[in-house]
Simulated assay, not measured.
Amino acid sequence: MITLTDSAVSQIRKLAVEKASEGQLLRIFVEAGGCSGFEYGMSFEAKKEDDQVLESNGVSFLIDPTSLEYLDGSVVDFDDGLSGKGFDIRNPNATSTCGCGRSFN
């Protein structure tokens, strides 16, 4: 399971109104890249055949099976404070992370 905090839910709902087209949900994914080997990503997309639709805190989102393996147990937060860096994924499966907050191993 992946948990979205209240602040993440608020920002996702705001972005969905601004950026999502009809029938699109937020996709949370992992891809090769970044300075630590893997990189987190988010985008609004239509559901693909192998996607799972998960729900947290009243928001449904998409995730592919491979990304779910890497992200299971993670918490997605959003920080918009003075030193906020946007979305932050706290991933218990990451053995190391980069200072940018988007890359992990």
Rank of each mutant, 00 (worst) to 15 (best):
A32P: 00
L62F: 02
E69Q: 09
N105M: 14
E31C: 09
E69W: 00
M42G: 06
I28M: 13
F29N: 05
M1D: 14
D88H: 14
F38P: 03
K19Q: 15
D77M: 05
G101D: 09
S56W: 02
D64W: 00
C35V: 05
V76D: 06
S21Y: 06
G86P: 07
G84N: 13
D80I: 02
D6F: 09
D50I: 05
K14V: 12
C35L: 08
V9G: 12
N105L: 14
S74H: 02
R13F: 02
A16T: 13
D51H: 02
D50C: 01
G41S: 09
K19D: 15
K14Y: 15
D6V: 08
E22A: 09
S74K: 02
R27Q: 05
R102S: 15
S10W: 00
Y40S: 01
V30F: 08
A20G: 04
D51Q: 01
T97P: 05
A46K: 07
E45I: 09
I12R: 01
G101P: 06
V76L: 14
T3K: 13
K47Q: 12
G101T: 12
A32S: 10
F29R: 04
T66A: 11
F78P: 03
Q24Y: 01
D79Q: 11
F61I: 09
N91K: 05
L15D: 15
K14P: 00
L25C: 03
K48W: 04
G34S: 10
G41H: 05
L68A: 05
G73T: 08
F38R: 09
G34P: 06
S36G: 01
F78W: 13
E18R: 10
A46M: 03
A46L: 07
N105A: 15
K85Y: 15
S10F: 03
L62M: 03
C100E: 11
Q11S: 09
D72G: 12
N93Y: 11
E18T: 10
S21A: 14
G33Y: 02
V59N: 02
N93R: 13
F78V: 08
S67W: 00
V17N: 08
M42L: 12
C100G: 11
G99L: 12
A46T: 10
L62V: 06
Q24I: 05
V17C: 04
F29T: 04
R90F: 11
E31R: 10
T3Q: 13
S103I: 10
N93M: 06
D88S: 15
S56E: 03
S7C: 06
F61D: 01
A32D: 10
S10V: 03
Q52D: 06
P65Y: 03
Q11L: 08
P92G: 10
L25W: 03
L15P: 01
S36F: 03
L82Q: 13
D77E: 12
F78Y: 15
I89L: 05
K47L: 04
G37F: 07
I89Y: 00
G84H: 11
G73F: 04
T5Q: 08
N93K: 15
A94Y: 12
M1S: 14
E55P: 04
C100Q: 09
I12E: 02
D80A: 13
D51S: 00
L25V: 09
D72N: 15
A16G: 10
E39R: 14
N91W: 02
